[in-house]
Design a protein around this nucleic acid. Structure first.
Length: 155
DNA sequence: GCCAACGTTGGC
DNA sequence: GCCAACGTTGGC
C-alpha cells in the first residue's frame, strides 16, 4: 500500500467536483507526463491512498484524501480530437496515456496549505516543496503522510 | 546525439 | 502577470 499526492487545478476539477460525482468516484484523466504516467501505471494499486492537492490557485494545498479504486487503464481522452488533451500519438491499440479511478474518502474541514507545509521542518524533503517540481503525481512517504494528517487536526 | 527554441506548470 | 523550472520538439 502506497501513499501519493495528486494535483488538480480547482478551476478545472476541484475536490467538490469529485464530491458531486456518483459514489464520489471518477476517473483521473489528462496525465500527459511520462514520469507521472509511470507512477500511476507501474506503482499505483487499488487501495492506495492519495492526497487531493489544489494547484495553481489562490491557496494551493492539500484538501482531502482519495482512494484508488481502479488501477491504470488507457486514458480515452487522448484518442479524441475534440479533447483538450488529445494526443495523436496515442491510439487504442497502443495507448500511451493511462488513468486510474479515484473515490473521495475525506474532505478536510480545513486544508493543509502549501505555505504551512513549507514551514514544517520535517517536510522539507517532500518533493512537493522542492523548487521547480511540476510533477502532477508524487509519491508521499508514510511519515510525511502521517505528519500532514496531524496538521489537519482531524482523526 | 546535441541543443536552442518553445510550451507548460505553478507559486508568487 | 511574471518568471523559474523543466519537459518536448525538431533542425542539424
Amino acid at each position: 500500500m502506497r501513499y501519493w499526492l495528486m494535483k488538480s487545478e480547482p478551476d478545472v476539477y476541484s475536490i467538490d467536483h469529485l464530491a458531486g460525482q456518483k459514489k464520489k468516484t471518477d476517473h483521473w484523466d489528462g496525465i500527459r507526463n511520462y514520469q507521472a504516467r509511470n507512477f500511476i501505471r507501474d506503482d499505483m494499486s487499488v487501495g492506495d491512498l492519495a492526497f487531493f492537492y489544489h494547484s495553481n490557485c489562490d491557496e494551493p494545498g492539500i484538501v482531502g484524501i482519495i482512494e484508488i479504486v481502479r488501477s491504470a487503464y488507457p486514458d480515452h481522452t487522448a484518442f479524441d480530437p475534440e479533447e483538450k488533451y488529445f494526443d495523436p500519438k496515442s491510439d487504442p491499440d497502443h495507448p500511451r496515456w493511462f488513468m486510474v479511478d479515484v473515490r473521495l474518502k475525506k474532505k478536510f474541514r480545513r486544508g493543509v496549505l502549501l505555505k504551512d507545509i513549507r514551514a514544517q521542518k520535517k517536510l522539507q524533503k517532500m518533493r512537493l516543496v522542492q523548487r521547480g517540481n511540476r510533477l502532477s503525481i508524487l509519491p508521499v512517504a508514510k511519515a510525511e503522510w502521517n505528519h500532514i494528517l496531524r496538521m489537519t487536526g482531524e482523526d
